[in-house]
Design a protein around this nucleic acid. Structure first.
Lengths: 338, 338
DNA sequence: GCTGGCACTCACGCGCACAGAGTGCCAGGA
DNA sequence: TCCTGGCACTCTGTGCGCGTGAGTGCCAGC
């Protein structure tokens, strides 16, 4: 177990390094923080911290920089979440309040988050599988062609074309629409398959095929995980990343373009509370030099999707976590209102 | 007027520079291209080309690189559009054919274009103002709350909440829905305002306010230019940009995040045929070191939106133009089929 | 267990010389 | 008139050596 002072030294190293982006030495530390001891003592502590793997030197005779393990300890034990100030809260709320639809909410959120944290922001659209159905609409576009529109409680709209095996009359369509809505409106997506299972039985023989087709399209839409969408922003902040550019930034941009990677990234994060993944804790290799701070958000008590930021491991964790948490909270409120 | 050989020299310079990314000298030129003259002669031609502003030297005793003006001449007079090969065409078609909905079409297009050109791809969603209405749906979510869903011929769906001034009965709603659709279905958005102008008159006094509210929301949705959406991809290709990184790449990433800038960029491009904007020809300052190749695409003969790529002025123009044209053509076909 | 002192080790910046690529110009030849 | 070979010149990029300074590890003393 590390002594109290050594933890203080680690905290000071993290803070200074995050601020200056340069390896921090023992002398500078004692000058900028009132640790009450001499540089020599700090050196001993640093040697101990290095033995334990919390800090490292880029080369002999340079200062120390925190390792992933060091950041981990910092986040877990040494730093809290820095709450937003009153004006900041106000600004967040004002900025999000103007949104007109779901796309707009997500778009504003992503910009806001990127600006607040000066990092890359990622916001997942409210996930279909965790939402409830607000309404299903069926539109006849041609005798044997139906458009299925699904509206969720979070305002998300999905639509699909359905080619029917046989012509489908307006009255049958209205019937199906009514039955469908009465069964699944306000229900969670996960429960829908069971609820519509026996629906074809209620129809005439000739319509059963079509009803079954429509239903299977509906179910497909519900489960299709590939349709999880997300929006990213603030990629220009990557340019503030470090000195050794192209090599660092390239895999990150690539990762950010792969929605699958990002969704997995957010998916892996814990369901409740804020998750911080530091450096090599990220499964995806291209993100090994980044940290990801993510949290769930939702309209009610339950999280329907996640949002977060991707930045250098050398980031201001308390500030970032504070911003992420605050934004998630307000987005949840906005969604609940609409 | 430049002699034929000088044009050849310019063409050779552009080709070599695009290939090697390094200033090209007179000796290397004569070695790699059979110009039939000696380096000394080429040097004279180069001096002339430099006087005319087509090429420049980064510093004395370095080779020459093309200027924006040089690229312009190259694109206009010296190079054609390189057509896609048979297998390439096939691959494009296969890749786009699997799309399930509009988002998917646009998403695939953007990835395809980025991959083919190895540059940043930008694809605009089919614009509302140039499309026609396929269907308008009205859903009653609460007594005085209506959801308006607008479906376009290109498969795009927009939805808006409408808070009515007074409760609105199901039958009135159905009436409005039917009247609206009979009037505006298959009509161009631009014509809609006139077509619905006198619609409130057909309703009872008590409903008129609500009808007017719904209509105004509809019209807002139609004109709201801010809702022009687009998708970008291939930003990782920016890392291949040049040597002097952060400075070059930053403003580009910033520009790419500003949808407004991009929409303006595409909007400024000519409506018919392919447009190439080289370096300083781009109005937006951050893109002064890039070239933009864009073209309209559409389901019928008419363009409903644009797509293009953003890359370094030093790009393979014939190849890029070929890819952009081919992709636009196939996307048009896909849209026409759905 | 903390402190001051001391020797040691590198990375970094600077000056310098050198090689190599490329140019401009000029005089001679088709 | 136009092309060509030759020549002197101008730069940039690179490698080398050296001094500087920040920072370390270790040790003896308090």
């Amino acid at each position: 177990m590390l002594s109290e002072r050594r933890l203080q030294v680690l905290r000071a190293i993290v803070q200074d390094y995050v601020g200056t982006e340069e390896p921090v030495g023992s002398k500078a530390l004692t000058e900028r923080h009132s640790l009450g001891v001499s540089p020599a003592t700090v050196r001993n502590d640093m040697a101990a911290l290095e033995d334990e793997g919390y800090i490292a030197q880029p080369h002999t005779s340079a200062g120390r920089i925190p390792t992933d393990k060091g950041y981990r300890l910092f986040v877990d034990k040494l730093a809290g979440v820095k709450p937003m100030t009153g004006p900041e809260r106000k600004a967040i709320q004002n900025f999000l309040d103007g949104a007109v639809d779901l796309d707009d909410v997500v778009g504003r959120t992503v910009r806001l988050l990127a600006q607040l944290t000066r990092q890359v922001a990622v916001v997942q659209y409210p996930s279909l599988t965790r939402s409830t159905v607000r309404h299903v609409e069926l539109l006849s576009l041609a005798p044997a062609r139906v458009m299925l529109v699904l509206i969720t409680d979070t305002g998300r709209v999905e639509q699909r074309m359905v080619d029917c095996p046989a012509p489908f009359g307006e009255s049958s369509l209205a019937d199906l629409r009514a039955r469908l809505n009465s069964r699944i409106a306000a229900r969670r997506f996960a429960d829908v398959p069971q609820l519509v299972q026996d629906l074809p039985d209620a129809f005439e023989n000739e319509d059963r095929g079509t009803v079954a087709t429509v239903l299977s399209t509906l179910l497909e839409t519900l489960v299709e995980e590939t349709e999880e969408r997300l929006m990213i922003g603030g990629t220009a902040n990557l340019t503030r990343f470090g000195h050794d550019f192209p090599l660092t930034i390239r895999p990150i941009l690539e990762a950010l373009e792969e929605q699958v990677v990002l969704l997995k990234l957010l998916g892996e994060a814990g369901d409740s509370g804020m998750t911080v993944r530091i450096g090599h804790e990220n499964a995806y290799e291209g993100l090994n030099s980044t940290s990801v701070v993510s949290v769930g958000y939702g309209s009610g008590g339950e999280a329907v999707a996640k949002l977060g930021v991707v930045g250098p491991t050398r980031m201001d964790y308390p500030g970032t976590m504070g911003a992420v948490r605050a934004v998630a909270r307000y987005v949840g409120q906005i969604l609940a209102e609409s």
